[in-house]
Amino acid sequence: MARQRIGQRRPGQQPAPYRGPGWQRRPTLGVDVGGVLVTLAGRDEDTSFFGGQPLLTPAVAGVFEALTALTAAPFAGRVHLVSKAGPKVAANTRAWLAHHEFFDRTGIPAGNLHVVRERRDKAPVCQRLGITHFVDDRLDVLAHLETVEHRYLFLGGTDDRPPDGSVPDWATVADTWTALATLLRESIPVPATGRP
């Protein structure tokens, strides 16, 4: 009888879940900016602001309260913002976050902002950071995040809705930050120690 090599699949066998570096890490949350933290003013950019007054672009309802609670527990400071943006939008994003005192209000470290140039570039960032949960308003972004076990399609910051039946099984849909926070908490099993 031939021996099967470790990591080699038998014909018809499903692939094993991702077990790369850090797969046993504690729950870590990744969050997009445009359409998730910031209400989209249009769909020309992934993160679009109100014309010449980007600082007046409103936050998505409930985002500050939800992220403050999630950053305290169950993610215990392991929350990262991962945004696709060019230089101008990245500067507007940083200015918006500073103007709204985002990091002070939520407890998320300012160093946990990661800006990439292409949507697909979020995947290696998530893998490097050991992100286990990710929230985005775009299915095409979530599709790239194969190492992220829990992927959430957030619809509360945009008027765009996916056609009925078009959301894959691997994505969980949420319309509000209150509902999303509940889904995120429910996805994390509490070990016998009482801490996630």
Rank of each mutant, 00 (worst) to 15 (best):
Q24G: 11
I188F: 03
R138Q: 15
L70N: 08
E101W: 05
L97V: 04
L40H: 06
A95T: 10
P189K: 06
V116P: 04
V82Y: 13
V33C: 09
F102Q: 09
A61Q: 14
P17R: 09
G77W: 11
G62N: 11
V115K: 00
A192V: 12
L97H: 06
D44H: 14
R151K: 15
V36E: 05
T47C: 03
H144A: 13
L29E: 01
R195K: 11
D160A: 11
H80S: 09
A181G: 14
F103W: 15
A179E: 08
F134N: 03
L139Y: 04
L113V: 12
K88Y: 05
D136P: 09
H150N: 12
Q4P: 07
V135M: 00
T57I: 07
Y18P: 03
T178Y: 02
M1Q: 09
V167L: 10
E118K: 15
G12D: 08
R119V: 05
F50Y: 09
L153I: 04
V79H: 08
D159V: 13
V60C: 15
V148R: 06
L70I: 07
G7W: 06
T57S: 15
L180F: 07
R78P: 00
E45Q: 14
R78M: 05
L139E: 09
T193A: 15
D32G: 11
R195H: 14
G86A: 07
T71R: 05
P109F: 07
P163V: 03
S166Y: 03
L184W: 02
V141S: 06
R19H: 10
A85Y: 02
I131C: 01
R26A: 15
L56S: 13
V79D: 09
A72K: 15
E149I: 07
V141R: 12
E146W: 06
A143D: 02
W96T: 03
E65F: 08
D140C: 03
G34Q: 03
R117I: 00
D164F: 07
A174V: 05
L129T: 13
V36N: 01
T39Y: 06
I188M: 05
H114E: 10
V36D: 02
L145Q: 06
F64E: 08
L55C: 11
A85C: 08
Q14N: 03
V33I: 10
A123G: 07
D169M: 07
R117M: 01
V82W: 13
A72G: 13
T68N: 13
A98G: 09
G111P: 01
P87N: 06
T176Y: 07
R119F: 06
G20Q: 08
G12Q: 09
L113M: 11
L113H: 02
L139S: 07
E186V: 00
R105P: 04
